[in-house]
Simulated scan of single mutants.
Amino acid sequence: MLYLASKSPRRQALLSQLGMEFELVEGSVVETPYADELPEDYVTRLARDKSAAGQKNVAADDIVIGSDTIVVVDQRILEKPKDFDDLQTMFARTSGRVHQVLTAVAVRQGQALEQVLVSSDVYFRSVSALEVQSYWQTGEPQDKAGGYAIQGIGGKFVTRIDGSYSAIVGLPLYETEQLLNRFIK
């Protein structure tokens, strides 16, 4: 059986696009970077930890997917905004600039583990303070890494991407399917 260790409706919808049947499993972990942990290492560790947490709740021969996505600018991790002031700070860093969206996927079956990290560059147009305020009022940025959803209203701030659109949304389809093919014969 295939399990997804995620509460994210975006990841669930993306995994459904691969045409595989799956169920959800609890895979919660503490999402706090270690001191001096690089963003790439942090997001990869979270994906691994989520798959391991999920594996504890299923049979040893079940397959568990764990994934995490972070937004990074100037090697600084932009988590979900705590409040409007936090969102303003995030947009001050990303407005008119390029930033990275890192998505890691870990697939685990018993002790076997395969993982991948996908990095995508996202280019933002300049965003005014009034636009940030209006965007906050939509409610969309509150639970999004980096304070925006490319697949939603926040997509209007994006001028270009170099990388994987589905990874930016939350689960890189191509890479996830490649990992799963190593387990599903």
Rank of each mutant, 00 (worst) to 15 (best):
161 I>A: 06
90 M>P: 05
149 A>S: 15
161 I>T: 08
116 V>S: 09
166 S>L: 04
168 I>M: 02
150 I>L: 11
102 L>N: 00
168 I>L: 04
161 I>V: 11
99 H>N: 05
108 R>Y: 07
160 R>M: 11
161 I>C: 04
145 A>R: 06
141 P>Q: 14
102 L>W: 03
178 Q>K: 08
100 Q>C: 06
140 E>C: 09
133 Q>W: 09
149 A>M: 10
102 L>V: 00
154 G>W: 10
115 Q>M: 07
93 R>W: 08
119 S>H: 00
117 L>F: 04
156 K>G: 13
93 R>I: 06
164 S>G: 09
132 V>L: 09
106 A>V: 01
106 A>W: 02
167 A>M: 10
132 V>D: 10
182 R>V: 00
112 A>V: 12
142 Q>I: 15
155 G>I: 09
98 V>F: 02
175 E>K: 07
157 F>M: 13
106 A>F: 05
141 P>D: 11
153 I>P: 07
181 N>M: 06
107 V>D: 06
131 E>G: 07
101 V>G: 01
93 R>D: 12
96 G>V: 03
99 H>E: 05
151 Q>P: 07
175 E>W: 02
180 L>F: 00
174 Y>G: 00
156 K>Q: 14
126 S>V: 15
102 L>H: 07
105 V>N: 05
128 S>C: 11
170 G>S: 08
149 A>C: 12
95 S>M: 04
108 R>A: 01
118 V>I: 12
177 E>T: 03
170 G>D: 06
129 A>D: 13
155 G>L: 11
124 F>N: 10
139 G>V: 12
142 Q>T: 14
174 Y>E: 00
173 L>G: 04
107 V>F: 00
144 K>M: 13
90 M>W: 01
166 S>P: 05
107 V>T: 06
138 T>K: 10
170 G>H: 00
128 S>P: 13
149 A>H: 04
102 L>P: 04
118 V>W: 01
94 T>H: 07
177 E>Q: 11
171 L>V: 02
135 Y>N: 08
127 V>P: 11
132 V>W: 06
126 S>P: 14
173 L>E: 02
179 L>P: 05
164 S>E: 03
166 S>D: 01
134 S>A: 15
130 L>Y: 12
146 G>T: 02
182 R>L: 14
147 G>C: 10
171 L>K: 04
181 N>Q: 14
183 F>M: 03
125 R>V: 10
104 A>H: 02
165 Y>R: 14
102 L>A: 00
133 Q>Y: 13
118 V>Q: 01
162 D>N: 15
103 T>H: 03
129 A>F: 06
121 D>L: 11
137 Q>Y: 10
175 E>T: 03
146 G>Q: 02
128 S>T: 15
102 L>I: 03
103 T>E: 03
147 G>F: 11
